[in-house]
């Protein structure tokens, strides 16, 4: 378990970037939170590769393995950065890097052990050579290209939910 302060700092900064954040301590609480987050509509993609992903309960009729046509992507991400409130997603292990880009709602499971306090901490740990694709996700897709008016959800997800568990 990373120190409480790092976890809290991550949650605070992710919330500042307009992500919806939840902190839970066991699988039951995670699924309780998930029920609220998933709501009742839309196809849900989940790779079901990691332990945490396998523990996620998705109603079978809503489950899909086609992220191109999913409304929601639930996945465990590689890690997070407390300093910036960012999720770290990588192509490590053949993960599909667009699975959390195409659906309009991204639900990220974050293990507290994988929260790096600062950018330097992550860059020092990301390996040489680094994975083909590393993407930091900080809040939902946004633009301010029309009159500098913030508009959420351009090409990527309009909602980002973060569950630290």
């Amino acid at each position: 378990m990373k120190d409480k302060e790092t976890v809290e700092r991550f949650l605070r900064n992710a919330a500042n970037a307009a992500a919806h954040t939840v902190l839970v301590f066991d699988v039951d609480a995670m699924n309780e939170a998930m029920k609220d987050i998933l709501g009742t509509e839309g196809a849900v993609y989940c790779p079901r590769e990691t332990e945490r992903e396998k523990a996620v309960i998705v109603p079978e009729e809503r489950f899909t393995d086609d992220y191109f046509n999913a409304s929601i992507c639930v996945e465990e991400v590689f890690g997070a950065i407390a300093e910036t409130g960012s999720l770290i997603c990588t192509s490590t292990g053949g993960r599909a890097v667009q699975a959390n880009l195409l659906p309009s709602h991204h639900v990220a499971l974050v293990s507290p052990e994988h929260i790096y306090p600062t950018l330097e901490d992550f860059f020092a740990a990301c390996g040489d050579p680094p994975p083909t694709n590393i993407t930091f996700i900080t809040g939902p897709s946004r633009t301010a290209d029309i009159e500098l008016t913030l508009t959420i959800g351009v090409h990527g997800p309009e909602r980002v939910s973060v569950i630290v568990c």
Partner: peptide, 24 residues
């Protein structure tokens, strides 16, 4: 640039899709 702590996305791309990868 925009007064953001970080942009929504920061991508670091190193080379092409590797043998076991499905995307990129």
């Amino acid at each position: 640039a925009t007064g953001q702590t970080l942009t929504s996305y920061l991508s670091i791309i190193t080379g092409t899709r590797r043998p076991h990868e499905r995307t990129g």
